[in-house]
């Protein structure tokens, strides 16, 4: 519980004693490139295979002749938008970006770079962490949109080249009973997950004590705790927004 309290105080410190807007803008743009653009490749690879595998496995399980093959497209679409794109990508993202944020801040802590900022009268939490959180919350929804599009494309590729079902059936399924709220739901989740990943990783890294070994431990903890927080908040958001 004391850790949770410390985390809340840490979040409170983000908004105290700001530097200039220009400083934050520059730092946030740098972080957008580092966090967002540099994650495109891994997110793309994971998404295409995620969509392709979902298509093949759904088609494999759909053996009832009374259920049309187009249902595969519908299932893959909803699965991708509601769960795979925001949540599975978040777990991959926590592994890549979360560990990097925690490692970066942990190293800065043990090499006294954070103390150097504090001595200069700079709010180190705000200066170092706020741009990372803003950049993640801003960029992660775009990555989720990309992941969704590529996963559905991966499903099409599986239909076309693996022969799981005909591409025509797949497209028919994609267009059947589409509920636009699914997109909003995915984007709401992506904002929540982006915030959780960046803030938890930053918190773990910022309070690293010790040496190189502890920096590694902070990175591991950041990924573990972020994944648990993602899954927990995924359930809570689904319960709040989908259950009528």
């Amino acid at each position: 519980m004391s850790r949770l309290g410390q985390y809340i105080l840490f979040l409170g410190a983000l908004f105290k004693n700001h530097e200039s807007f220009k400083t934050y803008l520059r730092l946030t743009l740098d972080e957008c490139i580092y966090i967002g653009i540099n994650s495109i490749v891994i997110v793309s690879i994971v998404s295409v295979f995620m969509g392709a595998v979902s298509t093949v496995q759904t088609a494999y399980n759909l053996v009832n002749p009374f259920i049309p093959q187009s249902v595969v497209g519908l299932v893959v679409r909803d699965l991708t938008i509601l769960e795979l794109a925001p949540t599975i990508t978040a777990i991959v993202f926590a592994g890549k970006v979360g560990s990097s944020i925690a490692g970066n801040l942990g190293t800065m802590r043990i090499t006294e770079q954070i103390d150097a900022l504090e001595v200069m009268g700079i709010n180190s939490v705000s200066y170092l962490v706020l741009p990372k959180i803003i950049a993640t919350v801003f960029m992660y929804p775009f990555l989720v949109i990309l992941a969704g599009v590529l996963a559905i494309t991966g499903g099409y590729l599986a239909a076309e080249f693996a022969g799981a079902l005909s591409p025509a059936d797949y497209f028919t399924g994609l267009k059947t009973s589409f509920n636009g709220f699914s997109i909003y739901f995915a984007l709401i989740k992506s904002v929540a997950f982006g915030f959780l990943i960046s803030s938890i990783a930053a918190f773990m890294g910022f309070y690293t004590k010790g040496g190189a070994l502890e920096v590694g431990q902070s990175s591991t903890k950041a990924v573990t705790v972020s994944c648990i927080a993602i899954l927990l908040s995924d359930f809570i958001l689904a319960q709040l927004l989908l259950v009528k």
């Binding site: 190293t107 090499t111 006294e112 770079q113 103390d115 150097a116």
Partner: peptide, 9 residues
């Protein structure tokens, strides 16, 4: 001036 320099890497 910090013990290890504390320069930003």
């Amino acid at each position: 001036l910090f013990q290890g320099g504390a320069l930003f890497d």
